[in-house]
Design a binder for these strands. Sequence first.
RNA 1: UGGGGCGUGGUGUAAUGGUAGCACAACAGACUCUGACUCUGUUUGUCAAGGUUCGAGUCCUUGCGCCCCAGCCA
Length: 570
Amino acid sequence: MNDASDHGSGNTHKNFIEIEIEKDFASKQELVGRTVYTRFPPEPNGYLHIGHAKSICLNFGLAKTYGGHCNLRFDDTNPTKESEEYVNSIKTDVNWLGFQWDKLLYASDYFEQLHDWACQLIREGIAFVCDLNADEMREHRGTLTQPGRNSPYRDRSIEENLDLFARMKKGEFPDGAKTLRARIDMTSPNLNLRDPVLYRIMHAHHHRTGDAWCIYPMYDWAHGQSDSIEGITHSICTLEFEDHRPLYDWFCKTLRIYHPRQMEFARMNLTYTVMSKRKLLQLVQENHVSGWDDPRMPTISGLRRRGYTPESLRMFCERIGVARFSSTIDVVVLEGSVRDHLNTIAPRFMAVLDPIKVVLTNYPEGQTEWMDAVNNPEDPSGGSRQIPFTRELYIEREDFMETPPSKFFRLKPAGEVRLRYGYVIQCNEVVKDAEGNILELRCTFDPTTKSGSPTAIERKVKGTIHWVSASESAEVEVRLYDRLFLSENPEDAPAGKTFLDNINPNSIRVVRAKVEPEVAKQLPGAKVQFERNGYFCADVIDSKPGVPVYNRIVSLKDAWARMTTRDNKA
RNA sequence: UGGGGCGUGGUGUAAUGGUAGCACAACAGACUCUGACUCUGUUUGUCAAGGUUCGAGUCCUUGCGCCCCAGCCA
């Protein structure tokens, strides 16, 4: 067995699941000669989100760590909520995250077997057909503090149960008319054991089995047995299924079939977003976002479109760890992960998001110099490119201040700043309109300071800013995304309000940016860094050939912004 | 308030009963033609109270707090 400690990215200790797995393999007779077998079992009733990524990384990661296998199994036992669209999106997302399943399976593959096992239980007198309707059943179930009462149909004969169940299967009864239940214990303090429903009648078309069935197994009746059939050694799920484990165990034991071990871990919460399927659906349906893959959504498809890489998501899952404590992860951990990955791979470009014109009064009109610029300082093999330098340029509006604070290293009246890969310039004049708005900055450049020249090296200036030629640049649409919600926990809204009231009205800002020519040539999906701004991704949907539209994935860390906001607060 | 879980710095996550560590964040400094990256350093923690023990985050007792369960959803 391999050592679980080598996951990379710093996290060298084992989590509690790995520890338990190792104990099991060291001590359990039935595991001798076997390897770890896990499964990722989504219901295809929606799009996967970052919380699922944690489960995917865990299940597939365990298999990889221990040289075992992991299946992708769709828990498709409720045809009214499921569709092939979701099946396909889930397959895409799992693969995109970088994982290959051993087998692609469906709970519906086992419908026949599950049905046979149900008949077995009936024949053994431990399952019965119940005529109680939903309301009556709820009433008989009791409450958290009061025991339930036996169904009046609990003691039907085996023959009658067999007959009734067969007729349920044949379609003789309408939806809801009858259920098949296990005879366990209506007084159990665990509500899951109070004669749970095994089958319900649903005259619904299933996306895989069509109209072959009109009775469908419940989750509890399907899940453990599916694990068992597949030879899953460790069935890993989230904490809310903990109360179901006694049932899971009871079914395996009662059916006398291979018995996987269910283990639960805490699902993740993320600050500044919502994760429940219902709320995500609501955001989509009420058009608060453009769709499941809106770049502001915490869905895998949204993060992918935003520009997150599989590597960054895996790194994130590694960093947050696995435990049984319901934690809330600060979204900065997610943002930090994508920064760390993109820093190593993203080519650098210059882009001015909020341009202000600079005229170099001593620079020849009509002249263009091609300046050499490094593509990625983190990647020596990345090479370099040429950027046009001209008399008229754009710089970022916030890189100039007329009356700056003391630590402001950028351009100011009579001050000097280096233009990255260009020259050192000095600001001589601020041209304004009648209202006092700055129209342009008139500056002079120092010809001895050309980037890369020997004379440039001696010249030290505190600040370096990015720029783009006014005449030799392109213009692109850039979408500046911010967090979708204003509050850390959008769900805790004041009385009478909902999470929707916490939506950030400025979660997207669209600008036209001036960019160096190369930026306009990037292909959809390209991930780049706009120097001193952030990481950006050419949108896969809205970019057209030769006309990319950029999404801001995440800004760069900004010590200056931190410093200024802190001073303002003080 | 029946049952099941869970409480370790700001956020996560470790620690056969034996020096409370790691990551992220923050802060300070160094470096810097990205106020990025990198490097160095620093701050901050065992829910509480008792008990057992030479020694308790870990074991025991009591209390407090949080999460999950009353679908013919998963």
